[in-house]
């Protein structure tokens, strides 16, 4: 997005909340909805509108793990590590996915795929369970992990 458009969107959101108290988290949420993360450019306008120094804002922002301070990956992989998935080999599945997706060791640093752990979501019948951009898939057995990884990669490169 163009720099000026980012600025405009931020100003719009900030203006909606201007003069109100206790709305900081809402503002962060709205900005994250708009951009997928809270960009550094957001700090000055928020600081000015709510009279909160930028570093203090950043402290609040980074306190909540929901908020991202960097653009999110295109594909978000959620790996369930709940008890059932654990028993069915989720750790190994995760390692395979990480390796194939280039997320571990020397292959690191792809912005387009991110893998994170999630809690049991009650889909234990699908264990080992993997979310791909929020959609549950399973069972992703150890043997199927490689194919899933390849599918994700083709999605990313598409």
């Amino acid at each position: 997005m163009l720099q000026s458009r980012i600025g405009e969107t931020i100003d719009q959101i900030v203006n909606e909340y201007r003069g109100r108290r206790g709305v900081l988290l809402q503002v962060f949420h709205r900005i994250q909805e708009a951009f997928g993360y809270v960009p550094p450019e957001a700090m000055e306008p928020i600081a000015a509108a709510f009279r909160i120094p930028p570093s203090t804002l950043f402290g609040t922002l980074t306190f909540y793990s929901e908020f991202r301070t960097e653009p999110p990956a295109r594909v978000q992989v959620g790996m369930c590590l709940g008890p059932t998935c654990h028993i069915k080999g989720a750790e190994v599945v995760k390692q395979i996915l990480e390796y194939r997706l280039g997320l571990s060791g020397e292959h690191d640093a792809s912005l387009d795929v991110a893998i994170h752990e999630v809690e049991c979501a009650g889909h234990c019948h699908l264990a080992p369970l993997v979310y791909v951009n929020g959609m549950p898939e399973g069972p992703v057995e150890v043997s199927a992990a490689q194919q899933l990884a390849d599918r994700i990669l083709s999605q990313v490169s598409a």
Partner: peptide, 14 residues
Amino acid sequence: EMTYKGPEAKIGTS
């Protein structure tokens, strides 16, 4: 400000 939390907590600027 104190930024991040838990074991990641560190003093930082915006």
